[in-house]
Design a binder for these strands. Structure first.
Length: 405
RNA sequence: GGGGGGAUGCCCGAGUGGUUAAAGGGGGCAGACUGUAAAUCUGUUAGCAAUGCUUACACAGGUUCAAAUCCUGUUCCCCCCA
């Protein structure tokens, strides 16, 4: 592959490369000198389940690896004790050392589903940030002005709205920037929410006489709700370790408008094909549902297999298109003492099956007509159900359970 | 160091002694409609075998027949002056 071809492949899906010319030069220089570029990614070890949003960034890193470069993942164990204020309006809770270790391990395992483990180095920024003396910190911090830090939108907004900003939060971007200095990174990849931090790395590297890293910004993937960014806490995510069936189902629930974006950022479908899909969707030549199934299959195949993707689709069609019951579902084992005269209160049944978190919730669900047993609607919250082995309870659209005696 | 303002349910936010499990909005959930879409409409959104009971308006006490609402102390936050 020529440098231009590499560059264009890398450019796919990116929102911005700062600056583009520098990336091309670095790629060329690396090739000429036979020296891999250091591609840096900082991970905040708070949420140990990687979802498609983060996968967008990781997949970009993987591309660099395929071109022979080295990925360095920084587990921000030190910075996690600060809590990155990026896009957050509140200060994050602090993690214990133990939690960070466990999360980092989980992160690494999951990253390897996307990255090439042989070209991936994992480091903890506590290794160097934790070693700094206060005098060192002062020296680093003195290179950055308050005005420069306050340029950051998040800080500016909070300041203007009278919400609190702690001193240690102001130090966060500088810590991240110092990571780049310490590692002498060539490229830092991140979501657009990382823009300030990554550009700060460029600033600081200059102060240390280093070549500035290139900032490569990926869009923030919108979550399943179609509004907010994909995140675990908003429960609008697809985890890369989720079973094929769940992945498929979740992906089918995205809105039509998001499909092209998902194709671009989450699959390897060539861009000209994505473009033609976009066009044909707009012209009404393609049925959105068929394309969405294709999208779901493509993504499931990346994290599982083509066969698993096909099975997931078959299951989806069985349950939702033909309204049949799923092939397998959780089972609820009932013992003799749970049952009186062969009967069990519907509310108890739902809560025991873990389908509702409380009896009150179960009561509501029944009253709203969301519960069926073997296809028969139960709408009386005081109903006693004659339980039989193999009965299927359905609560809401998605939850099924089979009774076992 | 001085002065002022604030903390309400998942989130935002109204409420300044008694029909307040707490208006309104957002989000979630369910139902209708569908393509499990999206949009829209309707209902619902503390717990409890339940025409009632228990818990709940930062935390701990107090006043009162009655407190989110009044008083005292504590914690946290914001603004202004220095």
């Amino acid at each position: 592959m020529t440098i231009d071809e590499q560059f264009n492949a890398i450019k796919r899906g990116t929102l911005e490369i700062v600056p583009e010319a520098a990336l091309k030069e670095k790629l060329k220089k690396a090739q000429d000198e036979g020296r891999p570029l250091k591609i840096k990614l900082g991970l905040d070890p708070t949420a140990p389940h990687i979802h498609l949003g983060l996968a967008v960034v990781l997949r970009k890193m993987r591309q660099f690896q395929d071109f022979g470069h080295e990925v360095i993942i920084i587990i921000g164990d030190f910075t996690a004790s600060i809590g990155d204020p990026s896009g957050k309006s509140i200060t994050r809770p602090q993690l214990t050392e133990e939690e960070i270790k466990i999360n980092a391990k989980t992160y690494y395992d999951q990253c390897c589903m996307i990255l090439d483990p042989d070209k991936t180095k994992v480091v903890f920024n506590g290794q160097w940030l934790g070693e700094l003396m206060f005098a060192d910190v002062i020296r680093i911090v003195s290179k950055i002005t308050v005005a420069r830090i306050l340029e950051r939108d998040d800080f500016a907004t909070r300041l203007a709205e009278g919400r609190p900003i702690s001193m240690h939060e102001l130090l966060y971007p500088i810590c991240q920037a110092y990571d780049s200095v310490f590692l002498e990174s060539d490229v830092e990849v991140g979501g657009t929410d990382q823009k300030f931090n990554i550009l700060m790395g460029r600033d600081l590297q200059t102060h240390y006489g280093q070549a500035e890293q290139v900032g490569l910004f990926m869009p923030i993937l919108t979550g399943l709700d179609g509004v907010q960014k994909m995140s675990k806490s908003l429960n609008n995510y697809v985890g890369i370790t989720e079973p094929p069936k769940d992945m498929f189902g979740k992906l089918m629930s995205i809105s039509d408008e998001m499909m092209p974006t998902y194709f671009e950022l989450c699959t390897d479908v060539p861009m000209d094909e994505v473009e033609s899909i976009r066009k044909e969707l707009a012209d009404g030549k393609l049925h959105p549902m068929d394309i969405k199934k294709r999208l779901a299959r493509e993504i499931v195949a990346i994290y599982h297999s083509v066969e698993a993707a096909n099975e997931a689709q078959a299951e989806f069609e069985r349950v939702f298109s033909h309204h049949e019951i799923p092939e397998d579902m959780p089972e609820l084992k009932l013992s003799a003492e749970d049952i009186q005269d062969g009967k069990l209160w519907i509310i108890k049944l739902l809560t025991m099956a873990g389908m509702t978190p409380s009896n009150s919730e179960a009561r509501r669900l029944v009253q709203q007509g969301g519960v069926t047993i073997d296809g028969e609607k139960i709408s009386d919250p005081s109903a006693n159900i004659e339980v039989k082995d193999g009965q299927v309870i359905k609560a809401g659209k998605l939850k099924f359970a089979r009774i076992r005696l």
